[in-house]
Simulated scan of single mutants.
Amino acid sequence: MSHPARFTHENIPLNIDGVQLDLAVLHRTGPKAPILFLHGFGSTKEDYADITLQHAFDGHTFIAYDAPGCGETACTDLSRINIPLLVKTAQAVLKHFEIDKFHLVGHSMGGLTGLMLAHGEPQRVLSFVDIEGNIAPEDCFLSRQIHDHRREDDERFFHDFIERTRLASDPASALYAASLVHKVRTGAVRGIFESMVEFSDNGELMDKFLALPFPRQYMYGVTNSHLSYLGHIAAQGVQLACIPDCGHFPMYSNPVLMWQHIKALQDRA
């Protein structure tokens, strides 16, 4: 028995500042406003594939892709991968699909990428759901391990990182850790983490986030309710979405509520 395709899966060749990519993409076209999804470190485009099962999003064009260094995307120079290259990749994807205005959803590394993308061209973004993306130095609980647990050998660092993550008490952390070795190229880890820490410490991310002129939502798991800036950003007009029974990974721990909150913000926009 055959089933209708939920989305199209294709590979797009891109050249980003001399780095050749064979970008693995999921997408669907429709008459409603496009949604660009950016996954987090150690995740893939499939984090968002179930949008096609959420009838509230019927008719929306959407795009999700594996970031360079992740998933099924091939990259000729893993050492060049950092946040600026990830932003340029997102810009190239939007250009390829001829998308002007769009809703933006980014998780963790994808939230930081999305913030820099939106900061550069705020007139194109309809709304932004930032799922525990970096906006302050305290957000580097994963990426800062590149400094706090320093290893000269990248394979050794990544192995130890996976073991620490597997044993962490955060909900879905063990599930996340189990697939890290399959979803991330070891050669991409250092550049991504060092870049995330640099931007979080010195990139004035909070100012950039609060200056965005469209509806914004900051989604976080209840185990991260201690984040010091939540009250501040709420007072500045950012919609907060606290996900119960959840840590850093709402798409694994509580996806139903994640989709509901995403739709609520996009409807507001």
Score class of each variant (00 low, 15 high):
L36K: 01
I81T: 03
L115C: 09
A24Y: 01
A235M: 05
V197E: 11
V25G: 02
I12P: 08
L240Y: 13
D148I: 03
V181R: 11
E132L: 02
Q266Y: 00
R164W: 14
P171W: 11
R6W: 06
F249D: 08
R150D: 11
G59C: 11
D130H: 10
E98I: 11
Q20A: 12
E132N: 01
H60C: 06
G111W: 12
G106L: 02
F161T: 09
H119M: 04
M196T: 08
I81W: 03
I146N: 07
S179K: 10
T89F: 08
H159C: 08
T223R: 10
L142P: 00
P84K: 01
A118H: 09
L227I: 15
A5M: 13
N202F: 14
M116G: 06
E138H: 00
H27K: 09
S200P: 07
V181S: 13
M258R: 08
V129K: 00
L180A: 04
G18R: 05
L85K: 02
P215C: 12
D66Q: 06
R216Q: 13
A168R: 08
D17K: 13
L86K: 02
S43H: 10
I35G: 02
T8M: 13
T223I: 12
P68C: 08
D170H: 01
I12E: 06
P137G: 07
S127R: 06
D58E: 15
K32N: 15
S200V: 09
V256E: 15
H39D: 03
G187H: 08
L112H: 06
S169L: 11
F199R: 03
D154L: 08
Y218S: 01
L117V: 06
D130T: 11
I243Y: 02
V181F: 08
P68F: 05
R190A: 09
G18W: 04
L36W: 01
L78V: 03
